[in-house]
Structure formats: structure tokens, C-alpha cells
């Protein structure tokens, strides 16, 4: 078995298994901590608030835009760019069809793939530079925040090297980084990719009961 076959085969399946099981464990673990039932008479729907809160926080409020535009641009650029390149990049669509789903979908053209990758890179670099240069960010950032940034950067960088599909080793290195990323994700701050639903939802539910959409 070649190194590429190993990282795309058994190691990938192991990493994906860890990702799924550990993510489920952590997500359910948070819910299982439980919370006391709120018995104050409601003015609105907590369930409706949970959903509304999740959508509401996708959209930044204009009043904060002047002070937060850099983070908004960087954050949206990185996350949307990353989502697009993972889900719509031709090599990724082919890989997911071959290894996971058994079916594929129309990928982005090559120029589109390069464009979204550039957007994701630019967004990540903006967020990272901000994290290491802004006094607030320097104070509140933990080691885990930096590890997450570095890891995702390496995944994307090795992906860029592998994009030409000129050498198996480059593809193998990219897949190794992906495997490490999948294993690291559920134990790290990167897990906010799932917990945001609970966080926004819990606040939304609290305010939903009060008849507000925050």
C-alpha cells in the first residue's frame, strides 16, 4: 500500500470515524449537561426563537459595521470560500463521490475553484493577522485558537500545492493534513462549526420567550 493509498484509505476512514463519533459525543455531551426548565410565563415561542436566533446572527447589524467590517469581510470571505472550495472543487467532488457518497455533482470550473480558494485564503489571512496584531485579540486568543488557524492554513496550502495534480506525494501530503484536521476538529475550538447552532439557538430561545428576536 502506497503512502497515498494509506492516507486516502484506512487513515482517512479512521479520521472520518473519529470526526463523526467524537463530534457526536461532544455535541450530545453539551446537550446532556441539561438546563433547568424556564417556568416564567412566556410572551413568545422559545422554539421559534431558537430558529430565529440562528438565522439572525448570520447577518451583521449595520450599527456595528464601521467597527467590525474587517472581521466581517475576513470571516465571511474565509468561511464561504472554504465551504465553496470543499463542496464544489472538482477534485473534492470526485473524491467524495469515490470514497463516501457514490454520487457526485457539478463542480466549479477551474477558474471558479481558484477564485474561491483565493477568497478563502485572503479571509483566513485577514483573520489571522488580526488575531496576532490587534491588542484585544492578542489578549483573548489561546494556544488552541492559533493551532486551529495554522492547521486550516496548512490544509489549504497543501491543497493548493496538490491542485495541479502533478505528483502523488503532494496529494498525499494534503490528504494527511486533511486527516489530521478531521481528527483534531472535534476536540478543538474548530468545533464552533457545530456549536454555533446551540449557542445562537439558546440565546434565541431565551429572547424568543420574551417576544424578542435577538
Amino acid at each position: 500500500m502506497s503512502f497515498l493509498e494509506f492516507v486516502e484509505g484506512p487513515l482517512f476512514l479512521f479520521a472520518a470515524g473519529v470526526f463523526v463519533l467524537a463530534s457526536l459525543w461532544r455535541f450530545v455531551g453539551i446537550i446532556r449537561i441539561g438546563r433547568k426548565k424556564d417556568i416564567s410565563p412566556p410572551k413568545g415561542s422559545a422554539a421559534g426563537g431558537f430558529i430565529a436566533g440562528n438565522f439572525r446572527h448570520f447577518f451583521p447589524r449595520g450599527i456595528f459595521a464601521r467597527r467590525t467590517w474587517l472581521h466581517i469581510v475576513g470571516g465571511y470571505g474565509f468561511h464561504l470560500g472554504l465551504l465553496a472550495l470543499v463542496v464544489l472543487g472538482a477534485p473534492h467532488v470526485a473524491f467524495l463521490e469515490d470514497r463516501l457518497f457514490g454520487f457526485g455533482w457539478t463542480p466549479l470550473p477551474r477558474w471558479g475553484f481558484i477564485l474561491v480558494a483565493d477568497v478563502a485564503f485572503a479571509g483566513l489571512i485577514v483573520l489571522w493577522v488580526r488575531r496576532i496584531s490587534d491588542p484585544v485579540m492578542r489578549l483573548i486568543s489561546s494556544r488552541a485558537d492559533h493551532i486551529g488557524s495554522i492547521l486550516i492554513f496548512l490544509v489549504m496550502l497543501t491543497g493548493a500545492f496538490a491542485m495541479q495534480e502533478s505528483h502523488d506525494l503532494l496529494r498525499a501530503i494534503h490528504m494527511l493534513m486533511v486527516d489530521i484536521f478531521l481528527i483534531y476538529f472535534p476536540f478543538s475550538r474548530l468545533f464552533h462549526g457545530f456549536t454555533f447552532v446551540l449557542s445562537r439557538g439558546n440565546t434565541g430561545a431565551t429572547y424568543g420567550r420574551k417576544g424578542m428576536n435577538l
Binding site: 453539551i30 485579540m137 445562537r200
Partner: peptide, 8 residues
């Protein structure tokens, strides 16, 4: 578990 320390 959701805070990404973005400082916003």
C-alpha cells in the same frame, strides 16, 4: 464551546 475569541 462556541466562542472563537474573535473579539467582536
Amino acid at each position: 464551546d462556541a466562542c472563537v475569541h474573535c473579539g467582536e
